[in-house]
Amino acid sequence: MELLFNLTLNGLATGMLIFLLAAGLTLIFGLMDVLNFAHGGLFAWGAYSGIWIYSTTGSFIIGILGAILTGFLLGIITEKWIIKPVYGNHVQQILITLGLMLVLSEMLKVIWGPNQLSANPPDYLQGSWEIGGMIIIKYRVFIIFVGFLVFAGVQYLLKNTKIGLVVRAGVMNKEMVQALGINIKKVFMFVFMIGSGMAALGGVLFGPYSGVIHAGMGMEFAILAFIVVVIGGMGNFTGSVMAAILVGLSGSFMAYYVPELSLAVNMLLMAVVLIVKPQGLFGGKG
């Protein structure tokens, strides 16, 4: 019982980290039709910048805010100078974003050195609670909490604000949004910024979760995030959170029971979805 509970909690926490990465990817793909392979780089940058700020200032909260800000900035720069020139051309997008991914990880090594860095939760998030004989690790609960908070916040934005409506409308029909007098390019930049901020947040939360961060971590998580985008339906925000939880849970349970198959199962899940329901498990776009 305790094992099941912990595997579930672990899976949910991992799922939330994947969600933070996948949500931006899916919106960027759905709205802008851009395959952003550099998205994982923002995850790693969030981790490094956030953990560095955290260790310099001693405040985890400031570290988190710093990571989000770094994500915003890198997102704006990426959209403006890297993505904008290649809108509408998938081959160029793949090449240039893969290139950017490499540049981003190499720059991490240049700035913070080639070795992995260690990261620990702040005092108040260390240790665990014991409830009814069950050990609950605080930091995992924290990640799940933040993940849900971000989900709820973005969901609110998408449902209740004009720009959110425009983003959803744009995912469905870009041309029509423009024919109604809306400058969709501005919306692109906004979405890119939010998506990058979420990825960076995921990265900094991941640090103390795994205990170490390294420059290649972006790529590893990006693969899971791409699987989630496919399973959840490209452009489907609510789909991405459900798929992320699914992938997180399956990863957590598989890693315990049949570790060799952990990633394979998720890949298989994606392949099946692509064949059976290519629009994603959770309905159409929306």
Partner: peptide, 21 residues
Amino acid sequence: YVPEDQGIFAGLTVEENMKVA
């Protein structure tokens, strides 16, 4: 502009379609 295929945002409600416009 009222396009030939109407260009309705299918997943948005009537109200939301109007709000975008």
